[in-house]
Amino acid sequence: MRKIKIDKESIRLIVVLAVIALISSLLLAVINMFTQVDEAQKLRDAIGEAYSSPLTDRVFDLSNYENLEKTEVSDMFEAEDGAIIILSKSTNCYNASKGVQLLVIIKEDKIIDIISYAHSETPGLGTNALTDSYLNQYCVYSVYDFGYVEGRLTDTTPVGKSVPAYTGATKTSNGVKDAVTAAARAYIKLVKEA
């Protein structure tokens, strides 16, 4: 059997790199302790800012919920006044990895408010379709106004009405429409039909 020779120089290279990596890891671990972000709390804070009524402890089971194509409903909360707040995401936008994440507030089957929660769209371009004035155009609709085929989005234009895409931000506008449709569907499936 051939004997593997390891010279001193190789060991030195390995040790130096390992020590630097170790110190880096320790430093990052310490800083991570102080800068860790509690995503659940961050979401609850955002809802608190957007909607005045406090949240109840009701838990919605989303583990078996099947999302529509290119959308994801990740969180649902119930407020004390009966409103349902849904965090809905669509990847049908310019920055698909981050997607367009909206907080859709529904009360008595009507969309009463939509807030942009997170996105990475281009400022002054895609973000035009995420302003309050644009999103509020959906606030006249009922959850039953949105059209979709089970499992995938086909035509999500609200029945009999439509919100026009923002010129120059068509893709983001479509993402917004998909996210709102996904929230409306989740409301029907998990609140009305449950």
Partner: peptide, 27 residues
């Protein structure tokens, strides 16, 4: 830092500080 592994060593140092900036900015 030995000359032969200087680039990985520099990358390690730079990556550490850019991760720190990312963590602080995120928070």
């Amino acid at each position: 830092i030995p000359r032969k592994v200087r680039i990985p060593a520099y990358i390690l140092v730079i990556a550490t500080f850019s991760t720190i900036v990312e963590m602080v900015m995120r928070k």
